[in-house]
Design a binder for these strands. Sequence first.
DNA 1: TTATCGATGGTA
DNA 2: ACCATCGATAAA
Length: 217
Amino acid sequence: MTRPATGDPQPLDEAFYARPADVVAPDLLGKVVLAKDPATGAFRGGRIVEVEAYVGAEDLACHASKGLTRRTSTLFGPPGHAYVYLIYGMYRLFNVVCQPVGVAHAVLVRGVEPLGPEASERVGAPLLEPPSGARGDGPGRLTRALGIDLTHDKDPLYGPRLYLVDGPPPGEVAVTPRVGVAYAGSWADAPLRYLDAASPHVSRPPPSQVGSGRRRE
DNA sequence: TTATCGATGGTA
DNA sequence: ACCATCGATAAA
């Protein structure tokens, strides 16, 4: 007696996002991102398995530390909206804006497990088959897989194009420093990256695995 | 397997 | 000039 898969998905509410990014981030693991495909009206979906928290103007790795500009205005805006920007000229990175207006926190989504039509009912929306070869591990890859681009910047996560819906949390969460922020001084080492420890769809596995174990296929 | 390197474009 | 990346290539 779940919802029909053809209705509008039921998004997380604003109160969920109006908290510090390092609190929202682990709570985001297991939740599902839905992006409407303009051609079909159906959705592409991914279950979040890896995130990083960027905790405001003091955080030298956070774009908000550059102050309020046209680009960062999204970060200073209302919670529960998407912050999408281009990096290295070719990748779009998808972030979730946190905290009330004026406080610029965000969570970067770094890994999702792509979902197909079989998850439609669970998610409350019709899902497309992920394009073959589509991967959700890596912040640049997942936006490609979901079809998220710069036009999604400032879009609400309550629809009509982007939705974030509930899902079961992972069994075990691993915490590490953030990736690629060596320039950020003391903030470089802050433990602000959170992963579903059991997921194979993570951009880079957490360090302290027992042995030097490589997973085989 | 790890290491290195270049593509590519918005922002400042 | 900078950069929250990726994928191809080379070395081993």
